[in-house]
Design a binder for these strands. Structure first.
Lengths: 216, 216, 216, 216
DNA sequence: AATGAATGAGTCTTCATTCAT
DNA sequence: GATGAATGAAGACTCATTCAT
């Protein structure tokens, strides 16, 4: 995690030299192994040799696909989040009602992370391990997710279903922060309940508020 | 969560032998140095010798006060958060109106972290660096903060000002998650705006919801 | 010691199976690439894959022609020095006057290394990198060069043009050492002067000595 | 031996922080151990852990005294050569006759390296391992030795005992190269003869030349 | 014969921790 | 109690060599 080593573009969803299907397969195996090992030990305590072993390759092979240990985490997160972002965009496009759009996003968010505990751990804990990492990722991909949410919010405001007196940025922060905290809370609990099942409740709070609505 | 606010709180582990004031002073200096160094470099890249230097003590002296590097981080967080928790409890006690109580908590949350950037970094990123740390902290201290929030929520429900159809746990998650995300977002931004100034807006979303209220 | 001069000489180890001209060609290309890469990076920092790339062959192909990285350096030096030795013997044979023979050897020595900087670097620095290499080379090939010089010296002594009170071994050492140092010195300088141009001056010192000759 | 790692000043004859006599002692022990291990294995094949073991310290201790493996070699050579250079200057100052001065320098040169085989190996082989090393060392210390020789030569020319038609630079190269080659040759031989014993013979060649002096 | 992806042994360096002073 | 020199375990990364294709 030298400052030097984080300069490069973290998003390399494809192997350096495309090569055969075998190559792409090995790339994926390493990525998946990395997520597992990192989830179990944390990034700094994860040994490259453990990732190699889990992926079923030799230590040196890792470096045919990734420049450094840092790059593995970057790639794993970029890879997974890129897929999530595509899904999120599809969901939003498939419907037009802003409230329903937020509901779908919440469900996708909780489903995606609720179905892959290791990935959830990496997202909720490792991603934030350093301000540097977070800042980089934030600027590249997380920002796009926030922008998507903010667009939905602004659309809702324009349609007249959402309040105009709220900053779309703050609403997006509340929406994302609430979901994020649900995931963290779920991870730290016994996880004996369904995370996606909480989507409606969260959206209910964000949309409807906590206060009792008086029919004044 | 200023350094001033840490004078006395039950969650702060005291030095092995209470000893003189000098001892307590050195203990504090190490803790403050740790927060600075960790905020600057991240926990894993922070060297114990750097913390010692910043605190103005020898490397070995650190180990007269703390068992390990891990323990320093734990103690620093416990120490600061304990002080915060004391303040939070005072605020809640000082008034009775649940909506105002939430408002005060939000303001305290954002003020505490907004006034000490290093501490904010440690909370938002380093604390979460590993599931291990987070789990420990979560069970011991964060839970008490959540419980405080949940009590306020339930009180509001009992008073009839908050909706009964919401889980206090989920509301607490949304409340905390929203504030938490505001802090993270602020850290990653240029920080050219006042974090406490956003407290009302966040509470407004959580209390009033995003949807336009009809039948007014 | 130009690449031209290496066509045929007995000291060049030939490929395992003589095979086609293509094979011999590839062998030569690897050798030349090795000298270039080693001159640029030093033997230990020269990677076999770099040599392969420079030679336009695959990494593995190197090992069809050479047993190990060490062997490449040995072969490259043997190859080049063998060619030089052939030339040196021809020069000596072509004339009979000992002083002129030494003069021709000096000129050949400085011309050969002065016209191929990479080879000069390999000779002056890489060959001596380890006592192991130097000892091997010294016993096999350099000794023949020294023997040639010593023969000339002894011939001169027998003819009466050279002093009898000097050990031919020490004279050979001085002759070779002087030339050798001229090359090293030239390599480390800006190389803005002609190395062969210094041949006469060196021979002048060795033959005539530094002292002013009285009784003239 | 990265290009980066050779930028720093190679001459650090004293420990980073002076400290006690013990510290200086350990510094010397490491330096001596380094010369031994490097002489036996060559610089690239010498392991830092071997140097540590030979010096009777832990691996990590090496790095309290030297920045890198490279720096150890640099320091060892600088250290030894610096001492030699001081002696050489003393010798030259102690007398005034140029021929005698050269004779003393030759004797010192061969005695110094002839009495410490390991140091001789490091000088004759490791020092030249890379043009980079050689260039650096050459510019800083070896140049001073050459300058000393050249001054003696010029003094001799001014006094009228040495020929005026010779470049002092070339004479110095011949003088040094001859001695240097004597050492190399001695190292590669069985070393069953005395190296200093050859000093007079070498000086005899350089001063008197190989040609028979005719009383024309 | 040629390839080049894969291997895995090898090592420099860091730094948390200890302990003699 | 305080020091800081010393320790030594640990691990990311390189690259000569192999071998299935």
């Amino acid at each position: 995690m030298d400052s030097e080593s984080t300069k490069e573009n973290p998003a390399t969803p494809t192997p350096a030299s495309p090569g055969s299907e075998k190559r792409a397969d090995k790339y994926q195996r390493i990525l998946e192994a990395a997520v597992e090992v990192i989830a179990e030990n944390g990034f700094f305590n994860a040994r490259v040799s453990d990732i190699a072993q889990r992926a079923g390759v030799a230590d040196g092979t890792i470096y045919l696909y990734f420049k450094s240990k840092d790059q593995i985490l970057m790639a794993a997160i970029s890879n997974a989040f890129g897929a999530f972002l595509d899904l999120a965009r599809s969901e939003v496009k498939s419907i037009t009602e802003p409230r329903e759009q937020l509901r779908r996003l919440a469900l996708l968010h909780l489903t995606s992370l609720g179905s892959n505990r290791n990935l959830a751990i990496v997202f909720q804990t490792e991603l934030r391990q350093s301000a540097r990492f977070l800042a980089q990722f934030s600027q590249h991909q997380l920002k796009q997710y926030f922008d998507l949410i903010r667009e939905v919010v602004r659309a809702g405001q324009n349609t007249g279903v959402f309040r105009h007196d709220l900053s779309d940025k703050i609403v997006a922060n509340c929406f994302f922060g609430s979901l994020d905290e649900m995931v963290t809370s779920w991870l730290l609990s016994e996880r004996d309940y369904s995370l996606p099942g909480a989507a409606d409740a969260v959206v209910d709070v964000i949309l409807g508020g906590v206060e009792v609505r008086r029919h004044s």
